[in-house]
């Protein structure tokens, strides 16, 4: 494997070098399968079935997917734990895991995987960014920090609404396409832009 001399924290990253992988269902077929798989949790929290899931989540995934594919982002649906491990075979500098966290486990399309199992899927030599778009995965983050020192982990210490993050990533990849910045800088700049917009909205509403 070729090693880039510039660390990923300072390397310019383009959308085509990133992968966005969904562990939660994004299609009707995967949603209905998730209802039957024991251990999966996220789809079962939607009491109104597919019509509710589509209106509140899958529609946003559809809206965001086409522009992201046009930017060159690799999108993976129905991610299994095995599929997650396979993502590290091609050295993407940034891997975004978009999924659900429950009781120290991450949801994949084939069931929940413990923090230890997810850690085992990340190669020891991986020196890219693992962007965990799952809520408060503190056990996994602690294990990654300790046992995968080369891996930079971005995580959410609070609960996150998926529709917000879908549009956040849309803005992030647009920013990465338009600017020659690192992934971490792009996250910081887009987050600041979102906060400024939110504050401007609050000021206007007063």
């Amino acid at each position: 494997m070729l090693v880039d001399p510039v660390p990923v924290s300072r390397r310019v990253v383009k959308p085509a070098e990133c992968v966005l992988a969904f562990g939660i269902p994004t299609t009707r077929e995967s949603f209905e399968r998730a209802l039957t798989v024991s251990g999966t949790d996220y789809a079962k929290q939607f009491r109104g079935g597919w019509s509710q899931y589509y209106a509140l989540l899958a529609k946003d995934v559809e809206n965001v997917e086409s522009p992201l594919r046009e930017e060159g982002v690799t999108i993976v649906h129905d991610l299994t734990l095995e599929g997650f491990a396979a993502l590290f075979e091609r050295p993407f500098p940034a891997i975004i895991l978009f999924s659900h966290w429950k009781e120290d486990a991450v949801e994949f399309s084939d069931g929940m995987a413990s923090a230890g199992a997810v850690l085992a899927a990340v190669p020891e030599q991986f020196d890219g960014i693992l962007d965990l778009c799952v809520c408060h995965p503190m056990a996994l983050v602690a294990a990654l920090h300790k046992q995968r020192p080369g891996c930079l982990v971005k995580y959410l210490p609070v609960e996150a609404k998926p529709h917000f993050w879908m549009y956040f990533y849309k803005a992030l990849f647009l920013h990465l396409k338009q600017s020659d910045v690192s992934y971490l800088t792009a996250i910081q700049e887009v987050a600041c832009a979102f906060l400024d917009t939110a504050q401007a909205g609050e000021t206007l509403s007063r």
Binding site: Y42, F46, H100, V134, L156, E159, A160, K161
Partner: peptide, 14 residues
């Protein structure tokens, strides 16, 4: 009131 009008958070419980 029953938390079904918005998508469930990625780490919440029902």
């Amino acid at each position: 009131t029953i938390d079904q009008l918005e998508p469930q958070s990625l780490g919440g419980r029902q």
